[in-house]
C-alpha cells in the first residue's frame, strides 16, 4: 500500500498537476476497509463508555439497594421489638388495664 500511495503522491508533486482519482475496485475495497476499521474503533470507544456509565449506574443502584436493605432490616427490628410478646403483655396490663377473664366469666357457646 505504501508503494502505491507514494507513487500517487510523487506523481502529483513532480508532474505539477492533480491527477483525478481513478475509482478502481481495489480503491473501493480499501476505502470500505478503512471505514469499517474506523467504525469499529469508534464503536469500541462508545461501548466502553456505555459500559462504564452503566457500571457506575449499577453501583449507584447497588448502594441504594444496600441502604434500603439496611433500612428494611432496621424497621423490621423496630417492628418486632415493639410487637414483642413481653411488650404486648406490659401494655395490655399496665397501660390498658386489661385482665384475662376468670373461668366463671367465660361462657362456652357450643355450635
Amino acid at each position: 500500500m505504501n508503494a502505491a500511495a507514494r507513487h500517487l503522491a510523487q506523481q502529483q508533486l513532480w508532474e505539477g498537476k492533480l491527477t483525478v482519482f481513478v475509482i478502481s475496485p481495489r480503491m473501493v475495497g480499501l476505502l470500505a476497509l478503512v471505514t469499517l476499521v474506523l467504525a469499529s474503533a469508534f464503536g469500541i470507544i462508545y461501548e466502553r463508555n456505555q459500559y462504564r456509565s452503566l457500571v457506575s449506574n449499577l453501583q449507584g443502584y447497588q448502594s441504594q439497594h444496600y441502604n434500603l436493605h439496611v433500612e428494611a432490616q432496621q424497621l423490621l427490628l423496630e417492628q418486632t421489638t415493639w410487637a414483642s410478646q413481653a411488650r404486648i403483655q406490659h401494655v395490655a396490663q399496665h397501660a390498658l388495664h386489661m385482665v384475662p377473664p376468670k373461668s366463671e366469666q367465660i361462657v362456652l357457646v357450643s355450635e
Binding site: Q73, L76, L77, T80
Partner: peptide, 9 residues
C-alpha cells in the same frame, strides 16, 4: 413467619 432472629447490618 414472625421473625425471631434477624441479622441487621
Amino acid at each position: 413467619g414472625y421473625p425471631l432472629a434477624i441479622s441487621s447490618p
